[in-house]
C-alpha cells in the first residue's frame, strides 16, 4: 500500500529480439548515417540528392531479400527524418514516397535474371522510380502546377548519374564481401565494410 509501484517494478518487460531484428537495426543505422551525409552535401537544385543510403538498400536486397530491404528502407526514412527534424514535414513525405516507389520497383527488378541484371540495373530503375513517385506526390500535393515538370530533365539526369554510381558502389561492396560467408549473429560483416568504404569511392 505504501509502495504503489513495487509490483510494477518487479515485473520486467522482456522485448525478445531475433538476430534478424539486430541485423535490420544495424543496417538501418548505417543507412541513416549515410542519409545524414546525403543531407550535408550541398547541391545546386532542390530535390537532387545522391541517395547514398540506397547503397545499403541495394546490398540488403542482394543479401537478405526484399522484405529486409523494405524494413531497412522504411526505418531509414523515419529515423533519418527524426534526426534531421523533418518528421511529418513535406520532405519526410517526399522521401517516404520515394522509398515506397523504389521499393516497389526493386521488388520487380530483383526478379530479373541475375546473369544479366545486377545492382547497377536495380539502382538505375530504383532511382527513376524514386524521383518519379516524388514528382507525382509533389505535383498532386506540394506544387500543383505543371511548371514542376520543367525540372524533370534535370531530375532524370541526376537519377541516371547517381543511380549508376550507387549501383557500382553496391556491386563492388557485394563483390568484396562474398555472400557465401554469412555473417555471424549479432555482427554484420558488410555493414562495417560499408560504413568504412562507401562514402569515398576510391577508384
Amino acid at each position: 500500500m505504501s509502495e504503489p509501484n513495487a509490483p510494477a517494478a518487479s515485473r520486467t518487460v522482456a522485448l525478445l529480439t531475433t538476430p534478424e531484428d539486430h541485423r535490420i537495426a544495424q543496417l538501418a543505422a548505417a543507412a541513416v548515417g549515410l542519409s545524414l551525409i546525403d543531407a550535408a552535401i550541398p547541391l545546386p537544385l532542390p530535390g537532387i540528392k545522391p541517395g547514398l543510403a540506397n547503397i545499403v538498400t541495394l546490398i540488403v536486397l542482394a543479401r537478405y531479400g526484399w522484405r529486409t530491404a523494405a524494413w531497412v528502407s522504411g526505418l531509414r526514412v523515419i529515423a533519418g527524418a527524426l534526426l534531421l527534424g523533418q518528421f511529418l514535414a513535406p520532405g519526410f513525405f517526399l522521401s517516404l514516397a520515394g522509398a515506397l516507389g523504389s521499393l516497389a520497383v526493386l521488388g520487380l527488378a530483383y526478379r530479373l535474371p541475375r546473369r544479366w541484371f545486377g545492382p547497377v540495373s536495380w539502382s538505375i530503375l530504383a532511382a527513376f522510380a524514386h524521383i518519379g513517385s516524388q514528382l507525382v506526390l509533389a505535383r498532386l500535393w506540394l506544387i500543383p502546377h505543371n511548371g514542376l515538370f520543367y525540372m524533370v530533365p534535370f531530375f532524370f539526369v541526376a537519377a541516371l548519374g547517381f543511380g549508376i554510381i550507387n549501383g557500382l558502389i553496391a556491386a563492388r561492396l557485394l563483390a568484396e564481401a562474398p555472400a557465401d560467408a554469412p555473417p555471424p549473429d549479432g555482427e554484420v560483416a558488410p555493414l562495417t565494410r560499408l560504413s568504412a568504404d562507401s562514402g569515398v569511392p576510391h577508384a
Partner: peptide
C-alpha cells in the same frame, strides 16, 4: 561490375 543487361538499362 556492370552486367550486360545493366548497359541496356
Amino acid at each position: 561490375f556492370v552486367r550486360p543487361g545493366d548497359w541496356a538499362v
